[in-house]
């Protein structure tokens, strides 16, 4: 009985839901003890090369409140806006985040208002992580469209996509910045993305932007730097 309760708490902390309430999120399995692995990141290096020589930039981090990221970005003299993308998804689209809910234009509008409510061209850089994978295509396009509006010209965005092309579950990651070239990636469980991306589909998604640069790695993650 106690083990069952502990499992549920672990799952809840890892971002999962009670299986009885949420058929969609019940697919997400949580690791009992998330393992954090540092990995070098060429895309991160390029991201920080874009922002390191300036001060007072507006940077949005969608990993939520994370001490490492807050310390790192504010330590560079920038202003940080912290938002938890999974929390925003759950708040607006419901705990099950069902495809039907994510296709509802009104809810998509509410989501943009809730999580990307910035002045046009007021954001200098965005750490989007793997957020887009957990959205339905309609919501993805709306989010990318709003990002294009709020990001200043030549602004930079860092995103991550899984490289598997099969429709299987993929690890759910939690990213932390260790230094300008190293990420800490913790696997908090597995889940099935709403959409699998190819390089072509990513390019098409960001087709209004200046450039989309891919960085392949050994751990089935594609890092992408998008320049507005």
């Amino acid at each position: 009985m106690l083990d069952g309760l502990k499992d549920w708490i672990d799952r809840f902390r890892a971002g999962g839901e009670d299986e009885g309430r949420s058929p969609q999120r019940s697919r997400r399995t949580a690791q009992r003890q998330p393992t954090s692995v540092p990995r070098p990141s060429s895309a991160l290096r390029e991201f920080f090369e874009s922002i390191r020589d300036q001060m007072g930039l507006n940077i949005v981090d969608f990993s939520g409140a994370c001490q490492a990221n807050v310390t790192f970005i504010t330590g560079l003299g920038h202003r940080l806006y912290a938002e938890s993308f999974p929390h925003a998804v759950e708040t607006i689209f419901g705990s099950d985040a069902s495809p039907i809910s994510m296709r509802n234009p009104e809810k998509i509008g509410n989501f943009l208002q809730y999580s990307l409510n910035f002045e046009p061209q007021s954001v200098d850089a965005i750490l989007l992580w793997d957020s887009l994978e957990w959205l339905e295509p309609d919501a993805q396009r709306a989010v990318v469209g709003r990002i294009f509006e709020v990001l200043r010209p030549n602004g930079v965005l860092f995103a991550v996509f899984h490289s598997e092309n099969s429709a299987t579950d993929v690890p759910v990651h939690y990213f932390k910045l260790l230094d300008p070239e190293t990420l800490s990636v913790a696997d908090t469980g597995t889940d099935r993305p709403h959409r699998q991306f190819t390089n072509r589909s990513i390019e098409k998604l960001f087709e209004r932007c200046q450039s989309v640069k891919f960085f392949l790695s050994r751990d089935n993650l594609r890092e992408v730097i998008v320049r507005r």
Binding site: Q67, R79, L80, A82, H87
Partner: peptide, 14 residues
């Protein structure tokens, strides 16, 4: 600023 794991924060940090 100190933010512990498990805290929820949404907003700007200056």
């Amino acid at each position: 600023i100190v933010i512990e794991d498990g805290a929820y924060f949404k907003g700007n940090i200056d």
